[in-house]
Design a binder for these strands. Structure first.
Length: 519
RNA sequence: GCCUCGGUAGCUCAAUUGGCAGAGCAGCUGACUCUUAAUCAGCGGGUUGCAGGUUCAAGUCCUGCCCGGGGCACCA
């Protein structure tokens, strides 16, 4: 077809249903109807129309109420001959429309309504509100606006879209067909709003810091690398906000937070996406105990605000968020779960040997801290169903956390767990620039030893600390995971509108086969 | 990267031991002035993810590849 702008709308490539819709589009144009008009006449959203009828009911039953013009997507229709019932949906709800042949001009009902309008089209209907004999509040259509033509068939009206790949690749279709998915993302927005509300009410300042960073840091992860052409400069997409937010504490903002996207070049799983939403806050004149208290309060506030309860169901578990949460040292938790006291095996070799003796599968080349983390994540984390803080971590897995005043091998750090999943990470921040530099150097040493997640040295950050930072408590939480927990979802993809998926390879591309860069 | 399970009509799903690829919704044609998963009659719609192989015969068995789910590894 030479008149098709693109193969996408070449009838030879369309299904029977798509061809029928394209023909209906042309029929509308032939009838002098603009299928994509620029203006909409609307007096009420569907929710407003319902409220209007509630507050202005007709004096006698079965008579007409106020006249409204409502707009929306046609979700269903039931054609009874000379009258049709249609379900119209906008962002606020659904309304039944009663379309009578004799209320519409000329042959509009037979020629346009019955022939050229498809499920999914956007329409506006003007007429009085009334309640049908079967009790359904409806608008009787006295005039109709055509608003937008739909060229693809709608998802199954009863089952929606179930196929996960289809749902994630074409989330818009998922959202059209599955109202509960729309509800879930409204809940997600409410969670983020409640987090902001809590922190704003507590006097925190919301800030925005660079996503493109010359030196990445603040977490143990591999970064994405990009390049600024004009400046001839490699830049990293941030893996955390931490080092920038603490520069702001140096600058005199005592309480700051940021909610935004982090990027980590790691594997994808039910709880990992390459980009994810993080909340971090930093509070001057506080330590990790203060942060622990605040964490309980904040999560409980959000749950109460969004769910109206502190008891939530996550998969087969019932979780009670009521503060205070259980607190146990990491050392004790691992000791309870494995009978290994990692303090008794203070280097990688002895700990690895002990793990080998207990037939615990691990990589013996890993540094000591990684082995401790392995014990924690394998034997402790899955059993932390009720909210729990693991406190006091080994110094060498925590390069930004302040050392314990009583035990030089420990730092003042905790992680929060819920439903067997790590939720947040926090500590008393190192504010001694010389100590921090030494930790960075130790990390760089690890980097030369093959630990790819180790921190590079951020000399500008050391410079910032050298101007003086008050004792400060810091905190980070994965907002996606928090959303999973509060909505009962067992995969992060369900709480991300557009989760990362491998791109589908086009057949035409395969012949080109460009050399891929080294991994 | 490795292991494992899956991919059938626009959507949701069937297809017994290898034996004519089906249903509901949606679509098309028609009937119907209170339906709401409307109903009734009729009709069309398939490269069974892709490419090979075995076989008289492949959705089904074998090999490779693509995409997805789950697990491992890595990580938060």
């Amino acid at each position: 077809m030479s008149d098709s702008p693109h193969l996408l709308f070449d009838p030879a490539h369309l299904t029977d249903q798509e061809q029928a819709r394209l023909q209906n589009l042309q029929a509308l144009i032939a009838a002098g109807i603009d299928p994509y008009p620029a203006r909409v006449q609307r007096t009420h959203t569907i929710a407003q129309a319902r409220a209007l009828y509630e507050s202005n009911p007709p004096l006698e039953a079965a008579t007409y109420g106020p006249v409204v013009t409502v707009t929306g997507r046609l979700k269903a229709f039931r054609n009874m001959g000379k009258v049709s019932f249609a379900d119209l949906e906008d962002g606020t709800g659904q309304m039944q429309i009663v379309v009578r042949r004799d209320q519409l001009p000329d042959n509009w009902y037979n020629d346009i309504w019955k022939k050229s309008i498809d499920l999914g089209d956007f329409l506006g209907f003007s007429g009085p509100l009334f309640v049908t004999k079967t009790g359904e509040l409806s608008v009787e259509a006295h005039s109709v606006q055509f608003l937008s033509k739909t060229l693809k068939p709608m998802p199954d009206k009863w089952h929606g879209v179930r196929d996960q790949e289809k749902r994630y690749r074409r989330r818009y279709v998922d959202l059209i067909g599955n109202p509960e998915v729309r509800d879930l993302f409204r809940t997600r927005a409410a969670i983020v709003r409640a987090l902001r509300e809590y922190l704003d009410n507590e006097g925190f300042l919301e800030v925005e810091t660079p996503i493109l960073q010359p030196v990445y840091g603040g977490a143990a992860a591999r970064p994405f690398v990009t390049h600024h052409n004009q400046l001839h400069q490699d830049l990293y997409l941030r893996i955390s906000f931490e080092l920038y937010l603490k520069r702001l504490i140096v600058g005199g903002f005592d309480k700051v937070y940021e909610i935004g996207r982090d990027f980590r070049n790691e594997g994808v799983s039910f709880k990992h996406n390459p980009e994810f939403t993080q909340l971090e806050f930093y509070e001057a004149y506080a330590d990790y105990n203060d942060v622990m208290n605040r964490t309980e309060q904040m999560i409980a506030y959000v749950a109460q605000k969004v769910l109206g309860t502190l008891t939530l169901q996550w998969q087969e578990h019932t979780v009670d968020l009521t503060p205070p949460w259980r607190r146990i040292s990491l050392r004790q938790a691992i000791l309870d779960a494995t009978d290994i006291d990692y303090e008794a095996f203070p280097d990688a070799e002895s700990l690895s040997n002990e793990m080998k003796r207990m037939r615990i599968d691990h990589d013996p080349r890993q540094p000591w801290g990684k082995l401790v983390d392995k014990l924690m994540s394998t034997f402790v984390e899955p059993n932390l169903i009720q909210p729990t803080f693991l406190v006091d971590y080994p110094r060498d897995v925590s390069p930004l956390a302040k050392g314990s005043p009583t035990d030089p091998r420990q730092v003042e750090r905790f992680e929060g767990f819920l439903a067997g999943m790590e939720l947040c990470n926090a500590f008393s921040e190192i504010n001694d620039p010389i100590d921090q530099l030494q930790r960075f150097i130790d990390e760089s040493y690890h980097a030369t030893q093959g630990d790819e997640d180790a921190h590079p040295v951020d000399e500008d950050y050391i410079d910032a600390l050298s101007f003086g930072m008050p004792p400060t408590g810091g905190f980070g939480i994965g907002v996606d995971r928090l959303t999973m927990l509060l909505t009962g979802k067992d995969t992060i993809r369900e709480v991300l509108l557009f989760p990362h998926l491998r791109s589908v390879k086009e057949e035409a591309e395969e012949e080109v086969a460009p050399e891929s860069s080294s991994q």
